[in-house]
Design a protein around this nucleic acid. Structure first.
Length: 926
RNA sequence: GCGAGGGUGUCUGAGCCUGGCCAAAAGAGCCGGACUUAAGAUCCGGUCACGAAGGUGUUCAUGGGUUCGAAUCCCAUCCCUCGCACCA
């Protein structure tokens, strides 16, 4: 078929479908599936395509089975990304302009409007709808909305009122990555450098120095007992400050950081690191210790001053040793306080000496430090005189004690140096206040989710472990923001609800979205939604009739049956939505299942718009046709596997569809009288129907395609081979065509809609009844004998292939009756060891002597090689092989072009004839 | 580093749970043949090695182990993908 024909068919079909998939509640079964809605900030590529096409295949399959199917779509617009994009467009940022103008091909006049963030989402939402329609995705577009539409905001307010009323939202402080230049928290996407930086909580240990305090930052407060000295960098100028009114000495960088972490900081003077050297400081838990110089101390790390525990910190140990090798500070010795099984008394010394470290500049020091810390954390224990606790507990105990009694406070710092914002400025840790959190840490809430998760269908089943881990691992989630698009928090309108938190129960909103478009948003009070979703009465509800309509429609669709999403959302969105559902909806309305998708690759590399490695879905449709795109995307891998888009592979998919079309066109012309081989074809078809249906029930789109496309195709190939010369097949092929077109309709609906019409059928194939296997057409006996014939043909072919002579005749020797008896006995025997003895009890058998055990052995080998379903069938009764081959002699002669004779091996003296076994005749080629 | 999932022939990818149907489905690619003025499409055959009889040998990330028998079970190692939080 030419590209033009395909476009013509697609165009016509789309007109038929315009309003074909707009379901309303009707009696009977429903099926509600939905997909995580897209954030429309760019054009769709083929990776997005599969996310919506695979569910569409399921939607169409369910619809043909007679269910009322809802597949809705909306657009997620809340958050900050489009705001950033619009700014970059406004600034004429070359990268942004290139992406939108060249890759996404946004027309210049439209691009000019992109300085308005809403213009971006409007443009791409429309594009999404257009392209999704062009893919044949059977969405009910009446329900489309965006998450900044006023009715949706009313809905979110209702949702959050519940979350708030039920104490799932708490207020607190929260350390975040923060860019002072932008005056904003920064996420991973906003960073030039240090994406993986984690925020660590250090404990500041307050040492007294005359009338001032010197805070040292540590991750291991329990080592305070082993402190022998402090380290300062002699080349650094430290500052004297008033922190919350108290005089502190810290690095200049630290002063700046503390100011972002809830402290008032006033710099009052400077003090050179050199000046501090050899001064003495004190702490109640370790007494008086001196300050020593060390080059490894970084002023930009935490407070810029470090406490030294040479017995347990390799850095401290080696820095001290370096000094002592210069002959100074000889009086200071490591003070061990922790016992670690795999190390000596002084673990740091042990480790340094084992690794033969020369000095503190050795590059292996980082790794060594990690090693000692891990060992102590895992297996270390404080000495009895320091409490005797395991390190992992002592750490918290000591920190709490120092906080309560010795003025310690936390200080936050990154675990990696150099965290840089996209604006180029350095990023710091800042404590945000009055931040609202969803309390996912709540054990009661978690256990409700786990309990419900147990009842859900998860596809593929392997993801269950990951969901369970995620629920277990989730901590409180900062759910409000200052910037971006979104709905304001009802009880604290200074905050916006964060984008992952306003998209958790919108699947319920879809069920009434089209009705809400006719209602004034002002009427949508929490009471109204309480009535619609929870059936809760309250006085003075407006327009009761409309509310009842919506209540009925919601109850018709909910709970949803399946939610589809890529696997990267397991650890946030997919799990969040379970938390929110269990918090708000009664048990009977909780989600039933989820299907998790793999990722998309393009020519083996990850698809990424920013790297330009994308193939736009619309281009793919134009170049190959929508059905080809669909069939490739759902047929090259199962939905949960990653798939790789390669144009040359897609091109061959296109040929397969063409082949299917022309085969159907040929088949429907056949008018012959159905014969024996038609019974075989019909029987096989029932199996394909059953297996394809099963595959789609399990969301195995690839498996389904293999079964229905290639499975049926190869049957037809064999069928045609078996037809007498000149025959084009029987009128049964017409019935087969009807089944075949319907089976493939969910996957390649455009082609099938067209073929359905050319078969003369009425109505849309999209609503045609799904084929059901007809047991009366099943003929296992016929399939078995055909299988034997095909195996025999293969055997003959492989013989012909290796012998260099031109055959003049083929003789088939079928196994004699007594061998069939043995075969059945062996196949049915539970104990293969005693089977020979059993058989030899028969006097007739005994007379055959050595032939019998030989045959038993051959049969055993053969039985192992045959599929179990064949064996169990053969036990019930061996086919009449002689009759089979006699009937097929004409076919075999046509195939091989030589006379074929069939004989009973028992009546022949040919040396090969003794090889004959049941289901494996001896063959002689002359 | 931690958590989850994976590594199969030229490629995509079945099989692995429940060990003998496995030289390992199916598709793609490639090679050869038929058809055609030719190309494409289509059809037929081949595609680990060896073989003048339907077989034999070696293979399923690597190295061990269990078993009469391992792609499948156990242990170790290496490699890949996703997630690790305020971001859609």
């Amino acid at each position: 078929m030419s590209s033009h024909d395909i476009q013509q068919i697609e165009h016509e079909t789309l007109r038929l479908w315009e309003h074909a998939f707009e379901p309303n509640p009707v009696p009977g079964e429903k099926f509600y599936l939905n997909v995580a809605y897209p954030y429309p900030s760019g054009a769709m590529h083929v990776g997005h395509g599969r996310t919506y096409i695979a569910p569409d295949v399921i939607a169409r399959f369910q619809r043909m089975q007679g269910r009322t199917v809802l597949y809705p779509m909306a657009f997620h617009v809340t958050g900050a990304p489009v705001i950033g994009i619009s700014r970059r467009i406004a600034r004429n940022d070359p990268k942004a302009v290139a992406l939108y103008r060249d890759l996404y091909r946004v027309p210049p006049d439209v691009l000019a409007q992109f300085t308005d963030p809403l213009a971006i989402v409007r443009y791409f939402s429309d594009e999404y709808e257009r392209v999704m329609r062009a893919c044949g995705i059977s969405i009910d577009w009446r329900r489309r909305f965006t998450t900044v539409d006023p009715p949706y905001s009313r809905f979110i307010e209702w949702q959050w009122k519940h979350l708030g009323d039920e104490d799932h939202v708490i207020k607190g402080a929260h350390p975040v990555r923060y860019c002072p230049a932008c005056d904003n928290p920064v996420g991973d996407h906003d960073l030039l450098e240090g994406e993986k930086a984690e925020i660590l909580q250090f404990t500041l240990v307050m040492f007294r120095y005359h009338d001032a305090l010197i805070p040292t930052a540590t991750l291991r407060p329990e080592t305070i007992y082993g402190v022998t000295n402090l380290w300062v960098n002699p080349d650094t100028i430290y500052v004297r400050t008033l922190v919350d009114g108290m005089p502190w000495i810290v690095s200049r960088e630290a002063a700046r950081k503390l100011a972002l972490q809830d402290h008032t900081v006033e710099i009052t003077g400077e003090v050179a690191g050199q000046e501090l050297i050899d001064q003495v400081v004190s702490h109640p838990l370790c007494g008086e210790v001196p300050i020593l110089p060390a080059r490894f101390v970084e002023p930009d790390m935490a407070s810029g001053i470090v406490m030294s525990v040479p017995a347990h910190a390799p850095f401290d140990y080696i820095a001290l040793r370096d000094l002592q090798e210069e002959g100074i500070y000889a009086g200071i010795a490591p003070v061990p306080i922790i016992s670690v099984p795999a190390y000596g008394d002084v673990p740091a010394k042990d480790a340094v000496e084992r690794a033969r470290i020369k000095n503190q500049d050795d590059p292996r020091m980082e790794a060594l430090t990690q090693e000692v810390y891990s060992a102590e954390f895992a297996t270390g224990r404080l000495y009895e005189r320091y409490g005797g606790e395991p390190v992992r507990q002592a750490r918290d105990t000591v920190a709490a004690m120092m906080t309560a009694e010795y003025g310690s406070i936390p200080m936050y710092e990154f675990d990696t140096r150099s965290v840089v914002c996209r604006c180029g400025g350095q990023v710091f840790v800042r404590i945000l206040h009055d931040q609202w959190f969803l309390q996912y840490s709540d054990p009661a809430w978690k256990s409700q989710v786990i309990e419900h998760l147990d009842t859900m269908t998860l596809v593929p089943p392997e993801v269950r472990a990951e969901f369970e881990r995620t629920v277990d691992w989730l901590k409180d989630w900062a759910c409000t923001r200052k910037v971006g698009l979104g709905t304001r928090l009802p009880w604290d309108p200074a905050w916006l609800i964060e984008p992952l938190s306003d998209s958790t129960v919108y699947m319920a909103y879809y069920t009434i979205a089209h009705h809400l478009k006719r209602v004034s948003p002002d009427l949508l009070t929490p009471e109204v939604f309480d009535y619609i979703f929870l059936g809760k009465e309250s006085p003075s509800l407006p327009d009761r009739e409309t509310l009842d309509l919506m209540r009925r429609e919601f109850l018709f669709w909910y709970p949803y049956d399946f939610r589809f999403s890529a696997k990267d959302l397991i650890s946030n969105h997919l799990t969040f939505q379970l938390f929110h559902h269990v918090a708000i909806f009664p048990r009977s309305l909780l989600p039933r299942g989820m299907v998790v998708f793999g990722m998309g690759l393009l020519n083996g590399a990850k698809m990424s718009s920013s790297k330009g490695n994308v193939f736009l879905l619309e281009d793919a449709i134009r170049e190959f046709g929508a059905d080809t795109v669909r069939m490739f995307l759902v047929g090259s891998a199962e939905p949960w596997q990653d798939f790789d888009w390669r144009n040359e592979l897609v091109a061959s998919t296109r040929r397969q569809i063409d082949r299917f079309s022309s085969t159907i066109e040929e088949l429907r012309m056949a008018t012959g009288i159905p014969g024996d081989i038609d019974r075989w074809l019909a029987s096989r078809l029932q199996g394909h129907i059953e297996r394809m249906t099963g595959a789609l029930d399990r969301f195995q789109t690839r498996q389904a395609l293999q079964e229905a496309f290639f499975g049926i195709e190869s049957d037809i190939r064999w069928y045609r081979r078996r037809l007498p010369a000149g025959s084009a097949g029987s009128s049964y092929l017409r019935a087969l065509s009807s089944v075949w077109v319907r089976l493939l309709a969910p996957i390649i609906p455009f082609t099938c809609e067209h073929l359905w019409k050319s078969l003369g059928e009425d109505g849309l194939v999209s609503y045609a009844p799904w084929p059901v296997p007809d047991p009366s057409l099943g003929d296992a006996e016929r399939e078995l004998t055909e299988d034997l014939l095909a195996r025999t043909v293969e055997d003959i072919e492989s013989i012909l292939k290796i012998i260099p002579l031109t055959p003049s005749a083929i003789i088939i020797y079928t196994a004699p009756a007594w061998k069939r008896e043995i075969f059945v006995t062996v196949a049915a025997a539970d104990n293969k060891g005693t089977v020979v003895k059993e058989i030899m009890k028969d006097t007739g058998m005994r007379r055959r002597g050595k032939e019998v055990p030989d045959t038993v052995r051959q049969c055993t080998t053969l039985i192992h090689k045959l599929p179990p379903h064949i064996i169990s069938r053969l036990i019930q009764g061996m086919p009449d092989e002689e009759l089979l081959f006699l009937n097929a002699a004409g076919f075999l002669e046509k195939e091989f072009g030589v006379p074929v004779t069939v004989r009973d091996a028992g009546e022949s003296t040919h040396p090969k004839a003794v090889l004959a076994l049941p289901f494996k005749p001896a063959l002689v080629v002359e």
